[in-house]
Design a protein around this nucleic acid. Structure first.
Length: 815
RNA sequence: GCCGAAGUGGCGGAAUAGGCAGACGCGCGCGACUCAAAAUCGCGUGAGGCAAACCCUCGUGCCGGUUCAAGUCCGGCCUUCGGCACCA
């Protein structure tokens, strides 16, 4: 091999890349020990769903993660850099409905193909830790974790209205409904009343919020999670229902406006509605209204532009402070599953209540004025000073919030209360291709968990995929019918499977202990490797996978399974790959296949271009001419290293090269290790290469070799194949990827002479070479004597001289 | 509407702690090599002004401010993209 490519004009990309890939596989150079005696680094990229082919977005994420992993390896870390497959999910099941090919078969074929594609990219994964979520030796532990949640009262069954996707024929979690549409297939989501399994993520709302403060994540993602959790502080207020032995509980963030409450509104689904209308004059009318509103889709229900509609129930509630009777209404603008499903109407100080009160001619009572006494229009939603509020009149809003809540508490009609937007996580799915929920329903004992030693609950093979109705598992009769583990009577297995987001909520832990057949992960190993130091992925999972994984980690921490309680210390959210100005899609016909591109340019040029063309977090536009540029650059590097050249003894040239070498080592190290600015790392290497082209033949041969080795080492994380080839051509026997990152003598960074700029009133008027050790005084003298500056000073007086050492002198003159 | 991010040459982008705006690359132009082309190598390339320059003016979405000095900081807008959207 080495002989074959001694010094041709261009190097044979595919021959070199194939050769080295094979060698790396044979020698397993990326294999990580279980507990190495070295500082650790865990580099992770989101594992893909095995759809069949990688797309350009995958190529980008894995390139970014691979560069980080390789850099950390060269700087002396034990690096965990694993890959796996998020292999349960609907596409495989849908394909089975169409083609009859079992999900397991198509998934395995897809994995094999995509794995081969990843290998073609030259990614430094430790494949011995490969994890596949649909294999029984993974999902048995997914089931075990479910049982842990169940044991800790964090998994429960509840009946209620749930999101239903008619096309996927399954329910969805709130996080999986986007804009009223199914996140996967964009169908309009409707409501169904079903008994389903939930995970109690709301118990962790505050912890999930607080945890964001100590992790290095983009603001954008933190903001999205914060918003999603939606913590709001306020008060619960109770209104006694006149003529009933019942109370309506409302939640408000503005207890200070309580004196302005002129009515109470219930959501159409509120359980009290039925009680209040039974036998009343309004019964038929209200019931018709409720029926109608319940049929309206969620998108329409919750749109701000939907007209507010409501109806009087005929009942009255007693105002807790004034004791006046106020009417109880039912209206479409109150959400059943937020707060208490009921609100107090304060038209003077709430936009929605105001519109509603005007429409239905309900009284509007102002109880807050601006603090500066200026007149304000209604509705006045800002804070201010209370008026007409009994003993609280004159009190500033902020103070009154607490005071009124406390007063309510003293009379037993309310208290301070915190409410969250986030709901519990609905995890049941009426689908086949997921981990079965390990529960047996027993007529005597109720739901009984399958004992851990009986896991896994294997997916049955004998099912038919019709895509209609309930879970396909329900049709596997001999699978469903089983024995209750508690009373040994007949029992029926739960036929729903778990949301596949559960599989991906703990896979990063499994990598630390892949192959362990006793437990999901070994605490010692997980504690050594966790947290993930850099997690690379797309922003589409900002509140799905990223929130669920944090929740899982916190629960496992609390259960004593794990020391960390945040999984991902730092998050790198990469932008999209676009082509022809927009996101690639089949319908637009602007798709690019990694197969074609890798074949045409090779892995190194493709990788390098992705790194060079844009910072990782920005969208990146694929460009044919652009990749040609990085391809040319790699050819240029190849020629530089392999071409025979003369040598010389030019001291000045050597100094120039040593200086730029030191600067480049520092720059590339910072860019790859700290700043994640791969684009500027590439440009620094281009500059270094340009300098070597200019001066290399003027320096001694042994210096040439060192300077070239530096180039090869610095480029190695980004272009692994070419650099491996060149490293061997530079007479090294071992892999460049196991070599040490180059160091530099800081003395080379110190210049003895520096050029500084002389400004007059902030405008550049001249340049000056000064010694690095010159005093400010000396620099000032030299600047004032500078020829190009003198003419600007004639007839003017110098008011001030600003000297910034080794940068500039600014002469401030007047006249 | 609320939250977040971003606006810099023909294009992708750089400027990391307020200090020479436009690094690096693409494209384009000119030249060398060549019978020729490709490849390669060299030079030039923000706009405008001038006979010309190494000179002058303008220039980082817009308006204003702070500062000796602003792409960068502050105030007010505009535009684009993303998230959330009757959450009481």
């Amino acid at each position: 091999m080495e002989d074959q490519v001694k010094a041709p004009e261009r190097y044979d990309v595919s021959a070199v890349e194939n050769y080295w890939r094979k060698r790396w596989e044979e020698t397993q150079i990326y294999r990580t020990e279980a507990l190495p005696n070295k500082p650790k680094y865990y580099a992770l990229e989101q594992f893909p769903y095995p759809s069949g082919h990688l797309h350009m977005g995958h190529v980008r994420v894995y390139t970014l993660g691979d560069v980080i992993a390789r850099y950390q390896r060269m700087t002396g870390h034990a690096v965990l850099h694993p890959m796996g497959w998020d292999a349960f999910g609907m596409p495989a099941e849908n394909a089975a409905i169409k083609s009859g090919i079992p999900p397991k078969v198509s998934t395995e074929a897809n994995i094999a193909y995509m794995k081969q594609q990843m290998q073609q990219m030259g990614l430094s994964f430790d494949w011995s830790r490969e994890v596949t979520t649909c294999s029984a030796d993974y999902y048995r532990f997914t089931q075990q974790l479910f049982l842990l949640f169940y044991e800790r009262n964090l998994a429960y069954q509840r009946a209620g209205a749930v999101n239903w996707c008619p096309s996927c024929e399954t329910v969805l979690a709130n996080e999986q409904v986007e804009d009223g549409l199914c996140w996967r297939c964009d169908s309009v989501v409707s409501k169904r009343d079903l008994t389903q399994w939930y995970l109690r993520i709301t118990d962790y709302a505050d912890r999930l919020l607080e945890g964001l403060q100590n992790i290095h994540w983009p603001e954008e993602i933190k903001a999205q999670q914060t918003y999603w959790i939606g913590r709001s502080e306020g008060a619960a207020v109770e209104f006694e229902l006149m003529g009933y032995d019942e109370r309506v509980r409302v939640f408000t963030t503005r207890p200070d406006t309580l004196y302005g409450a002129t009515y109470v509104v219930l959501a159409p689904e509120h359980p009290l509605v039925e009680k209040l209308i039974q036998g009343s004059r309004e019964e038929a009318e209200v019931r018709a209204f409720v029926e109608r509103e319940r049929r309206v889709s969620d998108i329409e229900r919750t749109s701000e532009t939907t007209e507010k509609r409501g109806i009087f129930t005929g009942a009255f509630a007693r105002h807790p402070l004034t004791e006046e009777p106020i009417p109880v209404w039912v209206a479409n603008y109150v959400l059943a599953d937020y707060g208490t499903g009921a609100v107090m109407g304060v038209p003077a100080h709430d936009q929605r209540d105001y519109l509603y009160a005007v429409k239905y001619q309900l009284p509007i009572r102002r109880v807050v004025e601006s603090s500066n006494g200026e007149p304000t229009e209604l509705p006045y939603t800002a804070s201010g000073v209370l008026v007409d509020s009994g003993p609280f009149s004159g009190m500033p809003s902020e103070e009154a919030k607490g005071a009124i809540a406390e007063h309510l508490k003293s009379i037993g009609l309310g208290e301070k209360r915190i409410s969250y937007r986030m709901r519990d996580w609905l995890i049941s799915r009426q689908r086949y291709w997921g981990a079965p929920i390990p529960i047996i329903h027993c007529p005597n004992c109720g739901p009984v968990p399958v004992p851990v030693d009986q896991l896994p609950v294997l997916l049955p093979d004998n099912v038919t995929f019709t895509g209609k109705g309930a879970s396909p598992l329900a049709g596997a009769k001999d699978w469903v019918e089983t024995t209750c583990p508690r009373c040994h009577g007949p029992g029926r297995r739960e036929t729903d499977t778990m949301d596949t987001f559960i599989d991906s909520s703990w896979y990063y832990l499994r990598y630390t202990s892949a192959g362990d057949d006793k437990e999901p992960f070994d605490r010692r190993l997980a504690d050594y490797w966790m947290p993930v130091d850099e997690y690379v992925g797309g922003k589409e999972h900002a509140v799905l996978h990223m929130l669920y994984s944090r929740f899982f980690t916190k629960v496992l921490h609390d259960a004593g399974w794990l020391s960390v309680d945040e999984p991902f210390q730092s998050l790198l959210v990469q932008g999209m790959v676009v082509y022809g100005g927009s996101k690639m899609s089949k319908s637009k016909g602007n798709t690019l296949s990694p197969e074609t591109i890798l074949a045409e340019w090779g892995a190194d040029a493709t990788r390098l271009f992705m790194l060079f063309a844009a910072p990782p977090e920005k969208d990146f536009e694929w460009s044919q001419q652009g990749v040609e540029g990085t391809y040319r650059f790699l050819q240029r590097v190849f020629r530089l290293v392999t071409r025979p050249r003369t040598s010389g003894t030019d001291e000045a040239a050597l100094e120039t090269l040593k200086r730029i070498e030191a600067r480049t080592i520092k720059k590339v190290g910072e860019d790859l290790g700290v700043r994640r600015a791969f684009n500027t790392a590439v440009s620094a290497l281009m500059e270094y290469t340009n300098a070597l082209y200019q001066h290399l033949s003027a320096v001694p041969a042994h210096e040439q070799a060192t300077l070239l080795e530096t180039l090869v080492l610095l480029l190695a994380p980004m272009a692994p194949h070419l650099t491996e080839e060149l490293w061997h051509q530079l007479s090294h026997e071992t892999s460049v990827h196991l070599a040490n990152w180059p160091t530099y003598d800081p003395a080379w960074l110190e210049e003895s002479q520096v050029e500084i700029v002389v400004q007059v009133n902030g405008k550049v008027r001249g340049r000056l070479i000064v010694g690095a050790d010159w005093s400010e005084e000396a620099i000032r003298e030299a600047a004032l004597a500078e020829d190009s500056v003198v003419s600007y000073l004639e007839g003017r007086t110098i008011k001030k001289v600003v000297v910034v050492p080794s940068r500039l002198v600014n002469l401030v003159v007047a006249g």
